[in-house]
Design a protein around this nucleic acid. Structure first.
Lengths: 181, 181
DNA sequence: GTCTATAACCTGATAGAC
DNA sequence: GTCTATCAGGTTATAGAC
């Protein structure tokens, strides 16, 4: 992995752990092993480097959702496997996380990939719910239901982090799946 | 309002807007109109002042939930009025917000009021759901359902902030209420 | 209770040598 | 491409006068 790549991956980690406001260029340089000059050679500054990291994280989120929602099985099964996929509940969502960061939300460029990725996941889930409805397996409005389910996952992280217990996240998912029937 | 009070209320505002990591003592002093010496006279430091603000915010969260969940009406109606209560979707939850802040989560003292308040809301909602179940109006497991519903609210903020549109929050609530039937 | 002074370190970046 | 030097300003306090 070359220096540029290491800078981006390190920034992904730090954005996840500490957010944008809580991540300093110095911390990125130290963890990645890149020097000051090196970082400013490859990127215009903190915001530019964060953009590269956020774009990549956003694309990864959409890809993970698609792996479940576009996988094998009936529409209902795919929704369940998306909801039940193992997640690192105490770390939270690397993308959803960023919506609570004031400096990310204040910067249109940083905000865009976050907005697009979450919207894409909701829309994709709505498509699969629509499919389940057509098949007669479910009787719900696709878009509000998809929005509620993705919100429940995002909020599941909030409650799990607050309680310090990953089981809180699982409990939220169980509750949502039970409601879906 | 005296200086001490102004410091606490200003800190509540700034924690909501910018989080703990993103809020500096200087910013608190400037917005509250209190001087450096004044702040350090009333509080041991940033963390001590934040604790006072967080404790108060956490208590307010529990009180708002109780106003709906302990209000008049049937159990089902109270759940609906809790879920439908108007919230400032783009600002997010002043308490849930803090779970994404690394320095709050790393400090047991700051974390405790956040953990307790969110747990109290979930438990209270579960009680009301149990009541609705006893009345034969609802057929759900109280605790997982309450966890899913509170998570949905917390995640509704995430999606609304990402999209920049408060309607996203409302859509999530609508989806959840529809599932509850 | 509030003020100013001071401190040691961090932040986010630029400049120019190698 | 990477390095070190430098910079103006912010951070989170402490000290002591008023």
């Amino acid at each position: 992995m070359d220096t540029r790549e290491r800078l981006i991956e390190t920034t992904r980690e730090l954005l996840w752990e500490r957010g944008y406001v809580g991540t300093s260029p110095k911390a990125i340089q130290q963890r990645s092993g890149a020097g000051q000059g090196s970082m400013y050679h490859h990127f215009d500054g903190k915001s530019d480097l964060a953009f590269a990291a956020i774009e990549r994280e956003a694309a990864a989120l959409v890809a993970r959702a698609e792996a479940d929602l576009g996988g094998p099985g009936s529409a209902v099964e795919r929704v369940a496997s998306y909801l039940r996929r193992e997640r690192d509940a105490l770390r939270g969502c690397p993308v959803g996380h960023l919506t609570m960061d004031p400096d990310v939300m204040a910067d249109a460029r940083l905000r865009q990939p976050v907005a697009e990725a979450l919207a894409a996941v909701v829309e994709r889930l709505a498509e699969v719910l629509e499919e389940a409805r057509s098949a007669g397996d479910l009787d719900v409005e696709p878009l509000p239901t998809a929005t509620a389910l993705v919100a429940m996952l995002q909020g599941g992280y909030v409650l799990a982090r607050a309680s310090g217990d990953p089981a809180t996240y699982t409990r939220a998912v169980d509750g949502a799946l039970a409601l879906l029937r």
